[in-house]
Amino acid sequence: MIAITDTSFLIDWVKYTKRDLIFKLFELIYIPESVFNEVRSETTLLWIAEGLENNKMAIFPEISELRNEALRLVLETRRLPIRSVDFPEAYCVVVGKVQNYVVLTENGGALALVNYYDEYKEVKVMRALEVLIELYKRGFIQEIKGEVKDYSRQTNHLFSNRDLRKYGLI
């Protein structure tokens, strides 16, 4: 599988001690230029540099047609009474749709968009929770409940009870 990641996923996942397990799921993870430009912390940049060096990560360029569609989503979502989507996330979702890549995000606006907007319902989105569950299903994680707690503790990312229940984790 190939994925494209936005800032929200990257900056949490990089804090996870087993972060490199993600390359067991994805042969390549793209980082859009707009996401790349937002990242400045040493930890994140070092991990990206390592990923680039090992050919596990690559920069996804800005393509004007995709860019225009992302800008359209940014505008359309601002007309709704719900958290809108910003350009970097919108771009990831558009790329996910056009290229059939998995979109890695924790961004509520992007997650909501692929749920309520019919045209984007086929886009596959994974948050850290779905990535951990998939790693567990493939045998790279031994015990899922403990791992989810560890992830949460290491990254200070809280998973909603609604989602944990949905996956039988509480």
């Binding site: 007309r79 709704l80 958290r83 509520g108 909501a112 309520y116 907007y117 045209e119």
Partner: peptide
Amino acid sequence: MKIDEKALEEWIERFEEARELR
């Protein structure tokens, strides 16, 4: 823009829950 109203409502709730947690 064709929208799933039920999904939209669910996400509005989720955002409110997320805000409460923060």
